[in-house]
Amino acid sequence: MPGLDQRVSWSCGETVEQQAYLTRFLLDYTAAPLVGGTFLRGVLPTRDAVRVVTGAGDAVAPDALVAYEVPLTDDDDEPVTAPLVLGWARTLAAGGPPRPDASVMGMALVRVDTSALEPAPPTSTDRVLRVLRTLAWPFTETPPSPPLCGFLLTGQDSMRLYLAVEEAGGPVAVDVRLTGALTALLAALPALVNEQERWTPDTDPHCAHAIDLTTW
């Protein structure tokens, strides 16, 4: 199974906006299962697509995860909606062991032909979340900056955030711990991610640079 090492690189724009929108919508499914015992474990940004990472509720080892690469547009070149991506992910997760096309970061990678895939219908949980999101997170014209265009759960106490920084020419991957001075870190993060002296090379093909803030 060949590896993928082509580094992601693009300018901020509609692609990043679409990835950030999908990431925001799918976040709840790190806690609510997609189907059965399968949960969302990450959303990885890549050119013209997102890679929806699935696994068991506590899975972080790459060989226990599957990344489904879903294009950002449909056959009519229209942006895909987040409920549609969720429905596809649920169908894929319920379909039994996948047949990977490749691997990425040690995970099985499946490139999805959405034209031949029937999305699963919304569940009662989906409908509940729709109501609560609408009331608790109303639309604002000023989105977060820099936008979160992906994430990956990397340990029981750590995760990798993908933040779109225009000057970086692609996402900057930021490794953080989930304990410690988390409130202070989140407040400082928009400034820290723009400090180019912190940027380091990384083998992750979903980012242009990386920053390790696990000891911040």
Score class of each variant (00 low, 15 high):
164 A>P: 00
164 A>T: 00
164 A>Y: 00
165 V>S: 03
165 V>K: 02
165 V>W: 01
165 V>M: 04
166 E>S: 13
166 E>H: 14
166 E>V: 06
166 E>T: 15
167 E>D: 15
167 E>I: 01
168 A>G: 06
168 A>F: 11
169 G>H: 09
169 G>A: 08
169 G>D: 05
169 G>Y: 05
169 G>F: 04
170 G>P: 06
170 G>D: 08
170 G>S: 09
170 G>L: 05
171 P>A: 15
171 P>V: 03
171 P>T: 02
172 V>K: 05
172 V>L: 08
173 A>L: 06
173 A>C: 08
173 A>Y: 06
173 A>I: 09
174 V>N: 04
174 V>Q: 05
174 V>L: 08
174 V>P: 00
174 V>G: 02
175 D>S: 15
175 D>K: 01
175 D>V: 00
176 V>A: 07
176 V>P: 01
176 V>D: 07
176 V>I: 15
177 R>D: 12
177 R>G: 14
178 L>D: 05
178 L>G: 10
178 L>T: 14
178 L>I: 01
178 L>R: 15
178 L>N: 09
178 L>M: 14
180 G>W: 09
180 G>N: 08
180 G>H: 12
180 G>C: 11
181 A>F: 01
181 A>D: 15
181 A>T: 00
181 A>Y: 02
182 L>Y: 04
182 L>E: 08
182 L>Q: 12
183 T>E: 15
183 T>C: 03
183 T>Q: 14
183 T>H: 13
183 T>A: 14
184 A>C: 00
184 A>W: 01
184 A>F: 01
184 A>D: 15
185 L>S: 07
185 L>F: 04
185 L>C: 07
186 L>F: 11
186 L>W: 12
186 L>G: 02
186 L>Q: 13
186 L>K: 07
187 A>F: 04
187 A>S: 10
187 A>E: 15
187 A>M: 06
188 A>H: 03
188 A>N: 12
188 A>E: 14
189 L>Q: 05
189 L>K: 04
189 L>C: 03
189 L>T: 00
190 P>A: 08
190 P>W: 10
190 P>C: 13
190 P>G: 07
190 P>R: 09
190 P>N: 07
190 P>F: 11
190 P>D: 12
190 P>L: 12
191 A>Q: 11
191 A>C: 01
191 A>H: 09
192 L>I: 04
192 L>D: 05
192 L>F: 04
192 L>M: 13
193 V>Y: 02
193 V>F: 02
193 V>L: 07
193 V>A: 09
193 V>E: 10
194 N>H: 13
195 E>L: 12
195 E>I: 01
196 Q>A: 15
196 Q>L: 03
196 Q>W: 02
196 Q>M: 11
196 Q>N: 06
197 E>H: 14
